[in-house]
Design a protein around this nucleic acid. Structure first.
Length: 445
RNA sequence: CGGAGUGUAGCGCAGUCUGGUAGCGCACCUGCUUCGGGAGCAGGGGGUCGGAGGUUCGAAUCCUCUCACUCCGACCA
């Protein structure tokens, strides 16, 4: 993409309403525009990152054997009366009437609807296990929206639901989600720690929240610092192997890590003192096992091999997709702007032409653009007739992890500069080598 | 929902107390000079001062009502 043909409304100054760094940078980098309290338009750059994050979530869910579908944002109140949550959910639920005076609601979550789909089509234990998920906009009429997309009223969430024949099978689904989530967050350059949590209005027995450590997080967290060293890495996971999946969960949940909701001072004090940490975290996902809480009232049952009719065991599993943008920026930025991890960056490489209109510089940029595109990387070429300082400032703000700088001075010696946004380190090399280096950097991401 | 604030040009703000018909910086447009970390000079465009009503010869400014947004707190992906 050439910047002169793109839509990137960057701001030089901080918008007054933005208090935390991710919100400020998302506004300044032209990623979002607020339309109403807690409701945002996603401008092209923000939308691009949102789609990349969504894509990673899809890939990891499908890898774990979970099946995507799409349910509507608007739901019928009757469905929620069946589970008893129409009255329980309270003011957070946006209730709407259609022209026939039918009571509708903008879905804050989809347990009822997915259960309805399940019971309409599944009646045998042979169809289990089954995990369905979607990535869809949700609406929760928060008392107090804040921090940009971190606590919006309208937000994009991945929510998945497992249906299993018994508790043991459902807990395997729970574990499968935990592992797939760990991989999902790692691919986004995040360290998200699973922490034992409270179940809240969703209800349930077993639940973990995934928290990204950040000083601006809304939750207070207590943890053993060794937990931040754990990495799933590139290891192969067989998601059908119950023991193997459970072993990974054990590895990631044995060390002490809890939010203030479940914190136990005596257990915390057993951690060696140097590793005892108190901090703040951003919740980016949560997994629940809730048994037959919905399947019983809503009659989602299967017939078992012995002929008996059993309510299915369920769980629900969520990732705050739009919130992740904020969380990633909170975890990865400096005083100049965002620093995107390679896995989610909106463009793989920024090309800065220091002397727009100079035949040699223009030609070199065009050649790099073509070469990068040819290896399936997406460049953003700043071809504006701007001074160097302005171009660098824009690139730093929007946070592309790699930049190639092209100027007449370097071209005289046949070199361009390859610069890491994260470290600031620059290296001179031929354009061909720079492109090869990029191919290498992005291989496997 | 309780408490505290703010609405003036795309963004950041001054002007409001003490009424006299709107200004600054950035951004934008034109020209010239500049050009490796947010340039300089000159010229220019853009605002029913959140909305409605009222007081007044006259309202961004005073009064009443209203809407929106932000921050702190209790709840949540």
């Amino acid at each position: 993409m050439r910047l002169t043909r793109y839509f990137l409304p960057v701001l030089k100054e901080d918008p007054a309403e933005a208090q935390i760094v991710s919100h400020r940078y998302m506004l300044r980098a032209g990623m979002i525009k607020q339309q109403s309290s807690g409701i945002y338009s996603w401008l092209p750059l923000g939308y691009k990152v949102l789609r990349r994050i969504e894509q990673i979530v899809h890939e990891e869910q499908i890898r774990a054997g979970h099946i995507p579908l799409l349910m509507p944002t608007l739901q019928s109140a009757d469905l929620w009366r069946e589970s008893g949550r129409y009255d329980d959910y309270g003011q957070e639920m946006l209730r709407i009437k259609d022209r026939q005076e039918r009571e509708m609601l903008y879905g804050p979550t989809n347990e009822e609807m997915i259960t309805d789909i399940f019971r309409s089509h599944v009646s045998s234990y042979k169809d289990l296990p089954l995990t369905l998920y979607h990535i869809q906009w949700k609406f929760r009429d928060e008392m107090r929206p804040r921090f940009g997309v971190m606590r919006g009223r309208e937000f994009l969430m991945k929510d998945g639901y497992n249906f299993d024949v018994d508790k043991e099978a459902a807990l395997h689904a729970y574990n499968r989600h935990m592992v797939s989530y760990l991989r999902t967050y790692e691919r986004m350059g995040l360290t998200a720690i699973p922490m034992r949590a409270d179940s809240g209005p969703i209800g349930g027995d077993d639940t973990h929240e995934f928290l990204v450590l950040a000083s601006t997080g809304e939750s207070e967290v207590f943890y053993d610092s060794a937990v931040t060293e754990l990495k799933l890495g590139q290891r192969e996971v067989n998601y059908d192997d119950r023991a193997a999946v459970a072993a990974i969960c054990k590895e990631f949940t044995t060390l002490y890590a809890r939010t203030d909701e479940t914190h136990k001072e005596d257990l915390f004090n057993q951690i060696p003192e140097g590793r005892r940490k108190v901090g703040r975290g951003i919740e980016v996902g949560q997994i629940f096992y809730f048994g037959t809480k919905y399947s019983e009232p809503m009659k989602a049952t299967v017939q078992n091999a012995d002929g008996s009719i059993l309510p299915v065991h369920m769980g629900s599993h969520g990732i705050g997709v739009s919130r992740l943008l904020g969380a990633i920026i909170e975890a990865s930025h400096d005083d100049k702007g965002i620093i995107w991890p390679e896995g989610v960056t909106p463009f793989h490489i920024g090309i800065v032409n220091l002397k727009q209109g100079d035949a040699e510089a223009d030609a070199a940029c065009d050649a790099i653009y073509k070469a990068v595109t040819a290896i399936d990387l997406e460049p953003l070429y700043d071809d504006r007739d701007e001074r160097a300082g302005g171009k660098f400032a824009t690139m730093d703000l929007i946070g592309l992890p790699w930049r190639i700088t092209v100027g007449p001075r370097g071209l005289k010696n046949g070199v361009v500069e390859l610069t890491s946004r994260r470290t600031g380190a620059s290296e001179e090399m031929s354009p061909e080598l720079a492109v090869a280096r990029l191919a290498n950097i992005y291989a496997g991401i």
